[in-house]
Design a protein around this nucleic acid. Structure first.
Length: 421
DNA sequence: AACCAGACTTGGAAGAATGTTC
DNA sequence: GAACATTCTTCCAAGTCTGGTT
């Protein structure tokens, strides 16, 4: 199977760029009628207009269903959602027809099917630049801005709650502190058929370690089985409250045993209209980025500004525990870079030595030796494989010594060029 | 109040496209 | 102009959250 895929890949790679572009354009033309939808009289781009193909299910982390067959979805499995007077889109597979056509204007999806692995719902939606998506995205940030007006009151409230006699209030107040302070996700219950990951409300005793003074160590698998590992000095009241909640419980017990995500959100709604746990993530990420960007120097050039922005944005990623695994070839690439770096430094030393020598002897040229990579010897009659082999040979061959006489001007030019890099 | 279905957002991986370098 | 690096796009699993049902 792998061989087959490899050869397909190679076949594709062999197509010249111009032809590949043409193929791409033809394909875009062919699918055009599926990529645009008319919504309230306006044309909108459709997001995922292709049905997910059959495949082996590949969950993330230790997923109980990993490797199960995700079956092919046929038109009969699909429900189409269109305006009551609109013509039903033609089914693209001959001999088949849509499972159902409905007219639900209370939802934003265009088509629906059931996932054969999870039995969950899968939808075809409009693209991110559609009205539906952009309006709701804007509303999300507006809600976060609104939270800014309530946050002091909410913080005061949960600090008071840490000392409450009512255990539910205590649990809720400590949990909310963690969501606010550490930007944790709310952490809904998960089923047997899913990877064992947690968020705030589903934290277990085993995920925490208490260190003095007032330091809590967090170590758990969050969304996408990405590890959250953080040692934080927390406020005294929260520390004591949390420690108390963990006491007399087994390591596999829930810390917030009486708290549910629904009750937490219900409570939040009583504090501010539309407030839910995830708003705190948006709020704190946005506020943090805003604060960090304000610390920037004003007179930087565009390049420096970009570096600065990326640096501050990375801080926000750390807050939200966003992590990307290193690309597969990262080590290799770093190795190459450091080899290149060493070679450049060596060349610089040689040039500087020559410059010094010329200055001392007052001559206008000097002998220099440079170590260069041999060029591949490519002949016009070579096959693609032979060329590749020759290139590989050249890149792996030892460096060649080249001795030459350089004029003083070219030595200085070469030095400047190295510094430019 | 526990449970579940449904709808929608979030976010990382992989692949495709594009840019850069030798 | 190939090879390599970087950026953009697509894909889809995995979350959040609401509202209905038992």
């Amino acid at each position: 199977m792998q061989e087959h895929l490899e050869s397909k890949k190679a076949e594709k790679k062999a197509i010249p760029a111009a032809e590949r572009k043409k193929i791409r354009e033809e394909e875009a033309e062919r699918v055009k009628k599926y990529t645009v939808a008319t919504v309230d009289g306006k044309e909108e781009r459709v997001g995922n207009f292709r049905i997910e193909p059959p495949a082996l299910f590949l969950g993330r982390g230790e997923h109980p269903l990993m490797g199960k067959v995700k079956k092919r979805i046929w038109p009969e499995d699909i429900t189409i959602n269109i305006g009551p007077k609109d013509p039903v889109p033609e089914c693209p597979i001959p001999g088949h027809k849509w499972g159902k056509v409905m007219h639900n204007k209370a939802v934003t999806w265009l088509a629906f099917w059931r996932d054969t692995i999870t039995n969950g719902s899968k939808y075809v939606w409009l693209a991110a630049d559609s009205k539906f998506k952009t309006v709701s995205d804007a509303a999300k940030f507006e809600k976060a801005r609104k939270l800014h007006k309530y946050i002091e009151k909410i913080r005061k409230d949960y600090r008071r709650g840490w000392k409450s006699e009512d255990e539910l209030v205590r649990q809720r107040s400590v949990a909310l502190y963690l969501i606010d302070r550490l930007a944790l996700r709310v952490g809904n219950e998960k089923g047997e058929d899913e990877a064992d990951t947690v968020g705030c409300c589903s934290l277990r005793v085993e995920h925490l370690t208490f260190n003095d003074p007032d330091v809590v160590e967090f170590n758990f698998l969050g969304k996408d089985s990405i590890r959250y590992e953080n040692s934080v000095k927390v406020e005294r009241g929260a520390y004591l409250g949390l420690k108390k909640l963990a006491q007399k419980k087994k390591s596999s017990d829930d810390i917030f045993s009486r708290l549910t995500t629904s009750s937490l959100n219900e409570y939040l709604r009583s504090l501010m209209e539309g407030l839910t746990a995830k708003v705190f993530r948006t709020y704190n990420a946005s506020l943090t980025l805003d604060r960090l960007l304000r610390q920037g120097g004003q007179q930087q050039n565009v390049n420096e500004q970009l570096v600065f922005y990326n640096k501050q944005n990375k801080e926000v990623a750390i807050l939200c525990n966003h992590q990307r695994s290193l690309p597969k070839k990262h080590d290799e690439q770093m190795g190459k870079l450091s080899v290149k770096y060493e070679e450049t430094i060596e060349w610089l030393r040689e040039l500087e030595r020559a410059a010094k020598e010329m200055k001392a002897s007052r001559k206008d040229s000097a002998d220099v030796t440079q170590w260069v990579r041999p060029k591949p010897d490519l002949k016009p009659n070579m096959t693609e494989e032979q060329r590749a082999a020759e290139r590989r040979r050249a890149s792996e061959a030892p460096l060649e010594k080249v001795a030459k006489r350089m004029k003083v001007d070219s030595v200085h030019l070469a030095i400047a060029r190295v510094h430019d890099r």
